[in-house]
Structures are given as C-alpha cells and as structure tokens.
Design a protein around this nucleic acid. Structure first.
Length: 317
DNA sequence: ACTCGAACCTGGAAGC
DNA sequence: TGCTTCCAGGTTCGAG
C-alpha cells in the first residue's frame, strides 16, 4: 500500500529516469486502469504518443508527468496536459527492459525513446485496480504556489488533483491553516486527517501512527482541538512520513522505479497500526502496561492505546 | 453546504 | 481438503 513517502520515491525515480524522454508507444492492456480517462483508450494513446515528459510532480499521493505537446513548438510555453497517475492500493510504476516478462497484473505499457543505459518501458502494474492513469489538463493552482513537489515547480496542477489540499511535506503547507479548517469542521480528527481536501497524503496506517505519536483519540472532535494539539499532530505526521521516506529512499539508486507495499518501514517501524493485543510501546517505556486495541472505524480499523489515547468526552466518528 | 456510508476490486486469511 | 466469507485499502460518488 503505497503511502506518500513511497509515492515520493516513485516521483524521484520518474524524475531521474523518465524526464526528457518521448513517449513512442502506448499499450492499454486493461481499460479499467484508465477509467478516469473518459475518452477511452484510443484517445489516451493518441494524446500520449509523441509527447515529451517534462517533469514529475507530486501532491499527496497524486502524481503527474507534465507533457510537452507534440505540435507546440515553443519550449518556453507552459505545458497544458499531464499524464496523471494514482497508485491506489496496489499500483506500481516500473521502468523495465522490454525483455522482462509481463507482470501478471500489467495494465499499461508505455514505450519511451531510447536513453543510454536506461530501460525503454514504463509499466503500470496494478492488482486491485484502485489506481489508474489518465491524460488530464493542467490548471492554475488556486493560490498561485507550486502545484506540488517537482524538479521544476510550476504554478500548475493536474485538474484531477486540483481539489486536493497540500500535504504536510509541501513547503507551502500551513499547519495554522489546517487548524482553522479543523475548527470549522464537525467531525472526528481521524476522519479529518483522511479527508484529502483538508490535508493530503495521509492514509489509514499513517493516521493511526500520527495519532498515537500525538496521544490523540481518533474520535476527538476537530472543533475542540487546541492549536498546540494540531501542531503536535502535524509534527507527528511529518515525522512518520520523513522516517518512512528515509527507509524507502534507500533502494532508490536502482534503475527500477518501484513501489513495494512491504517496505521495511511497514515491517519494522509501526507503533500503533496492526498492534492490537500488544503492549503500547510508550506506556511500556514509562513503566506502565497497557494493551493496544483495534476498533472498527469507517468500515475499517483504528488502532490505539486505551491509556494514552483516551476516549474524548464528545466522540465524533 | 456539510457529513457519512457505499461502492469499486482482488487475493490472502480465516471460517466451516 | 475444498468451499465460502471476510477483510484490507484510497478515493469518488450519491444519499441524507
């Protein structure tokens, strides 16, 4: 399950290996993976073939490659379209040699112009099809700031991601702004963390990790949050993401742009998620014993320590 | 306008 | 052993 740090690793890989190359051929093996491209596979292929990849940009878990249009001559003109990618639950973007056998869940094959020492294919592989690709317009950002994390930041954002808030690793992200949005909401803090319109890039796992680190209950009403608590929570989110980025970034020097759901971080560094029945690490450190619990939440699960993440007075789910 | 649950999808795990 | 059911997850969409 790629989270923001894994998507950032993919972005860096694409930035290094795909930027500057021309798309020669596109093969859609499963149209469900481009269902967000409403005009269908033929149009998808037609828009991509001949285009040159200018950069790799990420906001939250949304990733896009701004394209130089074939018939646009001026190198100084801003790009109009981008190849948009979301990895969903199980998506992978792989840069591979054409000789490699097709993956079982290979969905889209993109053949790139030759580049010395770099494989020629960009492959989108996705088992559960929650992710997908689409060619989308680039629109101006509403605040005039950069669209997201990029090598050459532009005040443009893929239309499909325009409703997504900035993520906590974005230099333009405002924790104070998030606090204001919390106060204006009538919902629980975990639901707010997962709402990509308020803050992007946080999934179920990192939400639990950050809430545990910040000692907050998932059902804490956001309109009762004190500013110090919001800032503590934002710090915790950043910390979790940066540590995962450190762990995931280590394999980045290979030619393969790879997202692996079983990254070392998930295996070794989780303090809350999946730890039901096990002792709370912080309580243990402080000489107390409390057992982590799993509770249903939004048809999923939340993990917390009943001792240091106490149930609030007015629960909001 | 805001909030929340359903739906999408696959395969591994758990239950029978 | 083989079958069925459950569960995981991010995001969008529609109902309330």
């Amino acid at each position: 399950m790629p989270e923001l740090p894994e998507v950032e690793v993919v972005r860096r890989g694409l930035s290094t290996w795909v930027t500057g190359r021309r798309i020669e051929r596109v093969e859609v093996l499963d149209p469900r993976s481009i269902r967000r491209h409403l005009l269908g596979p033929d149009d998808f292929r037609g828009q991509l073939e001949g285009a040159v990849v200018l950069d790799a940009v990420r906001r939250g878990k949304f990733l896009w490659l701004p394209l130089a249009d074939v018939d646009e001559g001026g190198a100084d003109s801003l790009p109009h379209t981008a190849l948009m990618a979301h990895l969903g639950m199980s998506g992978q973007l792989l840069v591979e040699d054409p000789g490699q056998p097709d993956e079982k869940h290979l969905k889209v094959r993109i053949t790139l112009s030759d580049s010395p020492g770099v494989p020629a294919e960009l492959r989108f592989v996705d088992q559960r099809i929650f992710g997908g690709l689409a060619v989308v317009p680039l629109v101006a950002t509403d605040d005039g700031g950069p669209g997201g994390c990029a090598a050459k930041p532009l005040p443009l954002i893929a239309a499909e991601a325009a409703h997504i808030a900035r993520d906590p690793l974005d230099p333009s992200f405002s924790a104070a702004g998030l606090h204001e949005r919390f106060r204006a909401r009538r919902t629980g803090v975990k639901r707010a963390l997962l709402d990509q319109r308020l803050v992007s890039g946080i999934g179920n796992i990192y939400a639990d990790e950050a809430l545990w680190a910040a000692r907050l209950h998932y059902a804490r009403p956001t309109d009762t949050m004190r500013k110090a608590e919001t800032l503590r929570l934002v710090d915790a989110v950043r910390d979790v993401m940066l540590r995962a980025l450190d762990a995931g970034g280590t394999s980045f020097d290979s030619l393969y742009v790879n997202v692996n759901g079983a990254s070392g971080y998930f295996d070794r560094s989780l303090s809350a998620y999946g730890r039901a029945g096990q002792p709370c690490l912080r309580c243990a450190e402080e000489g107390r014993t409390s057992i982590m619990v799993r509770e249903p939440f939004m048809n999923r699960s939340s993990y917390r320590c009943p001792s240091c993440q106490r149930t609030p007075r007015n629960v909001r789910l």
